[in-house]
Design a protein around this nucleic acid. Structure first.
Length: 492
RNA sequence: CGGGGCGUGGCUCAGCUUGGUAGAGCGCUGCGUUCGGGUCGCAGAGGUCGGAGGUUCGAAUCCUCUCGCCCCGACCA
């Protein structure tokens, strides 16, 4: 294991991000496959926890999992005009198989609207077949020109929900509902506050009539789109002839939705909570909740201390926690501390001879206050009731991480009314969450992007944005009337 | 895809300008010593320098091509 330093966020944010991925053993560039990554066990464990919770939420909202082919006939992709245009440049295409040229090439799925549309057409006949609520956990491939671990990789893991409905009201409800599911997941599980909103036309998903999204603030002030929920209207229904007979006996095309989150969320997690000491993971996603480090000097101490450590571990495991007893004897405690902190374990317990005497253990939270001498504060917990105490620490920590992220979001959020202020906010690669007026035109949006690199992340939900954002005004760039402020930021 | 940087033991890098077939630190193995915030000592294993081609008596060092990684940009749910 390398023992190099982690770059600081202040010195080199991009390097820091890479260092976290490396030191916490989340992932590494595959190298042998361009733009693709290997998700290592510790990173994958976080993704599995995300999956488990999201899957539960999808099922609770009536969705069923299914799995469609990885390869999609090119003709399918070509059926929806905007969809082709949006995805054609980043397709990887299979032209040979079984030792000969294929009659029709297959695209490796960049997303599955088309092939799922094909099967929806087979499965749906009557209004009684609707709504059809399907989710797929899968890998997809998009040949991106510039990749970054988790944030944008050639291949990534995700879930894609695909639903079909009998009328536009129901599909709209679905779009809103699933965005809410994502929002709740981000808040409750990832401890990451997000802003819900609607994408402008130019940021919309290729083939959708409306795209909703959740946008999260990263520690460098940039925005990360953490999830999307698309109202596809009848676009794919028409392209794939997905029709049904309604209650009046008339044939109509279904109204569809699609929605997804990906392994990008792991990147969002890193950039929401981690610090210059390494990864920080909220307890609800932590692959390891507690690391116990036994402290000893002599052999007889060692026996007693390690035995106590395992006893505590057993009690915590009974409470459903994942616990590591770090009884490696070729490593000093300090080195172990650094290792577990790099990997983002929320709580570390230290048990030494002194603690045994006092029938207590020392606890150190992954993010801790410093005392007057600049050392991390440790808590003394009685051995009696240790399970309850640690459970409370984890609950508190989960909440503190959210509060910390929310405070960071609040601090980084500004309302701006002058173009000069707007430009300087985004000067020199800087970014914040800026609410400003916009005249609603794609031209102005493009002009602002060209001059400042800031894009409209979304037209926010009123309840997620600061007060006054919903009021009319004049466009910061053109001076024309604006219905409300929109969220600007640089983005990943 | 444009501009820039880089690719040398597991990791991070030095060596390259001024060609002479490889070095350091960390990690790893063994023994001992240590162990409440990155122990110390001794002994040892491990690379042919991303790949291909060329120049040369001789290439990690020079040239060409190529693959990959990182940064900026363009592009992109």
């Amino acid at each position: 294991m390398a023992e190099q330093r982690i770059a600081t966020r202040a010195d080199d944010y991009a390097q820091w991000y890479q260092d976290i991925c490396h030191h916490a053993e989340l992932a590494e560039a595959a190298g042998v496959v361009r733009g693709c990554m290997v998700i290592r066990p510790h990173g994958f464990a976080i993704w599995e926890k995300m999956q488990a919770d999201l899957d539960r939420r999808f099922k609770a909202t009536g969705h069923k999992n299914a799995c469609f082919p990885l390869l999609i006939p090119m003709s399918f992709i070509n059926k929806e005009a905007e969809h082709v245009e949006g995805f054609a440049p980043e397709l990887a295409i299979v032209t040979r198989a079984g030792g000969k040229e294929l009659e029709e090439p297959y695209a490796i799925r960049p997303t599955s609207e088309t092939i799922i549309g094909h099967f929806f057409a087979k499965w749906i006949d009557s209004w009684r077949d609707l709504p059809l609520l399907i989710n797929q956990w899968a890998n997809v491939m998009r040949w991106e020109l510039r990749t970054r671990l988790f944030l944008r990789t050639g291949e990534f893991l995700w879930q894609e929900g695909h639903t079909a409905h009998a009328n536009p009201e129901e599909s709209k409800e679905e779009v809103v509902r699933m965005l809410q599911v994502y929002r709740d997941f981000c808040h409750e599980i990832m401890a990451m506050p997000v802003i819900r909103g609607i994408k402008t036309e130019s940021e919309r998903f290729a083939g959708a009539v409306e795209t909703r999204c959740i946008e999260a603030l990263m520690q460098d002030g940039k925005a990360l789109q953490a999830g999307t929920s698309h109202d596809l209207g009848q676009n794919f229904g028409k392209a794939f002839d997905v029709t049904f007979q309604n209650q009046d006996g008339e044939r109509d095309f279904v109204w569809q939705t699609s929605w997804g989150v990906s392994t990008r969320l792991v990147g969002a997690l890193v950039m929401s909570h981690s610090d210059d000491d390494g990864l920080v993971v909220p307890p609800r996603l932590a692959p390891i909740h507690v690391a116990i480090v036994p402290i000893f000097r002599k052999d007889e101490e060692r026996v007693a201390v390690v035995e106590a450590a395992h006893r505590v571990a057993a009690e915590l495991r009974d409470d459903g926690l994942t616990v590591e007893v770090d009884d490696r004897d070729d490593m000093r405690p300090g080195a172990k501390y650094f290792e577990w902190e790099r990997k983002g374990v929320p709580v570390r317990l230290e048990i030494g001879p002194r603690d045994l005497q006092e029938n207590a253990v020392m606890a150190k939270m992954r993010v801790a206050e410093l005392d007057e001498r600049g050392r991390a504060v440790k808590l003394k917990l009685p051995m009696e009731g240790i399970g309850i105490a640690v459970g409370e620490l984890l609950d508190t920590f989960q909440k503190e991480l959210f509060d910390r992220a929310q405070a960071r979001l609040d601090e980084s959020t500004v309302l701006i009314d002058s173009w000069d202020d707007f430009e300087s906010t985004f000067a020199d690669g800087k970014s914040r969450f800026v609410y400003a007026h916009w005249d609603g035109t794609a031209e102005t949006e493009a002009a602002i992007k060209a001059e400042t690199k800031a894009t409209i992340r979304c037209i926010p939900y009123a309840e997620d944005a600061p007060e006054g954002v919903g009021e009319p005004g004049t466009c910061i760039k053109s001076g024309k009337p604006s219905a409300q402020r929109v969220l600007f930021a640089r983005n990943y």
